[in-house]
Design a binder for these strands. Structure first.
Lengths: 274, 274
DNA sequence: CGTTGGATGGAATAAAAATTCCAAAAAAAA
DNA sequence: TTTTTTTTGGAATTTTTATTCCATCCAACG
């Protein structure tokens, strides 16, 4: 006999209820069903126009798992769940541009701000796609993939990029040292023959980063610079200069382009090493 | 034998073609088929989510009339026509998990890799524009701007975002503590009444971040979560959940959308505090 | 007034989709 | 470890949906 308190058969009546219930049960689900929950949460907009088979294959689960999932949510089955979305369906925000305009319409709100940052990021990526120097990137990959250990330095606003790079390198088993300036230790003795240095710095260029680049150069170690202009002061010390144009919004700088470049670099180096 | 000039079997390839063709043939149609044309023209937005029977009954014609109508338009049948509308609704569908999977195997040139990451970033931003939850963002801004001190935690792949957030908050004179897990210190005693917590975590969710969120919640402090899905385990502990869709494969994750959201949040909080 | 040709409605059929069920696998408990 | 329970995948089944076909209807024309 079924325990009525155990699986209350109350299907969500609107999209908010749906999200609420989804968030509520998701953490308690076993593997396959959680895959369903995650895929559905990330693709709510496709439910109205997809079949069980399509969604299941997207979530990488068998159709029957998706059916179970719908039932756990309180629906009679997939069709029942889909009805909710078909009724609420309207071809929505037709495209990116309209939606952005919509976000911006109440100026000064957080949403308007978000729209500005999204646009700045997009513009940066576009401009990177146009101006990227393939030869310099290839050279950078070669230099770093031949190094014993890669030293990464990036401070202030570039610290986030340096951290992420260190993370990705580590995931790809590339030996890496992140110089974070903690304790004001003198980094010079960490540089060994065979190492390479990756400097990330944008205006106003941090003296510590420039200094590490100069030291490495003095020791004849290869230096790769990820910076904002080819005229950047770090370019003097570098064997490969990756210039990434980045659009500022107000005093704040989108990091989208810089991060894309950083990831391409890291992944290329990682796979070049084996 | 059929006269090939009489019924050219060229299905419209996009919505403009469709409307064009509809306007073109509508005046020449007999009664029932004209009813179809008129109903379809007035309800284009429901085609993607309706069945033949539904549309036919809406147009007050038998299903077979509607089938004939689809074929006159150049489609093989109703399903063929419907596909156009289902696909047009969200372009850029073939998803990135597979594309990046291929990428990893083929290990293309660094330039190709860069192009892929740029494209991934662009897709993430676009998707963020479409799905951003204004209400949750506003709530998050309110909670954080009323806090004495903002505690930020984000580890592993989210550490970069946490760093950048701490940097921006600091620039805007918002008191902030970045919990970096260094020294495995117990963070709990750092949380004071009046503080708020900002947790950044994506799958696989780091236990430390979840734990800080739970502790804050237990102390009745407001918790804002910047995460990948509303089904994220951190959502249970959060007063505001900012879900940011991000194109993601294995260790490689575009952070473009997450950073845009983070910056909007930080700047909005900074200005709300004066 | 009968013939002709397209238009129509509905029943029959085919295709696709949803849903259930059960044996096997995995995980948890003992 | 062995037993018990839960979870899973896939094949079988049912239901829904799309599509075709044909007898009938209607209007124009001879």
């Amino acid at each position: 006999m079924d325990d009525p308190t155990h699986s209350p058969p109350l299907p969500p009546g609107n999209l908010d209820d749906f999200n609420l219930r989804l968030a509520e049960i998701a953490p308690t689900l076993p593997r396959r069903l959680r895959q369903c929950a995650e895929y559905i949460a990330a693709n709510t907009d496709r439910i109205a126009v997809s079949t069980v088979a399509e969604l299941a294959s997207g979530a990488d689960v068998p159709p029957s798992a998706l059916m179970r999932f719908c039932q756990l949510l309180g629906f009679a089955g997939f069709s029942d769940m889909q009805r909710l979305f078909r009724e609420a369906y309207s071809p929505g925000w037709p495209d990116y541009a309209t939606r952005l305009a919509n976000l911006k319409c109440n100026a000064g709100s957080p949403a308007a701000l978000l729209a500005e940052f999204i646009e700045a990021g997009r513009a940066s990526l576009e401009s990177l796609a146009k101006t990227a120097d393939d030869a310099a990137l290839t050279r950078a990959v070669t230099l770093l993939s031949q190094a014993d250990t890669v030293h990464i330095i990036g401070l202030r606003r570039s610290f986030a990029v340096a951290c992420y790079l260190a993370y990705v390198f580590e995931k790809m088993s590339v030996p890496v040292i992140l110089h974070d300036g903690a304790g004001k230790l003198d980094h010079r003795f960490a540089l060994r023959p065979g190492d390479a240095v990756l400097v990330i710095t944008v205006a106003p260029y941090s003296p510590e980063a420039l200094c590490l680049a100069a030291d490495a150069r003095a020791l004849d170690l290869p230096v790769v610079a990820l910076t904002d202009h080819i005229t950047s002061p770090v370019a003097r010390h570098a064997n490969a200069v990756l210039a990434v144009p980045e659009v500022d919004f107000g005093a704040f700088r989108s990091l989208s382009a810089t991060l894309s470049m950083a990831m391409a670099l890291a992944v290329a180096v990682g796979s070049a090493r084996g």
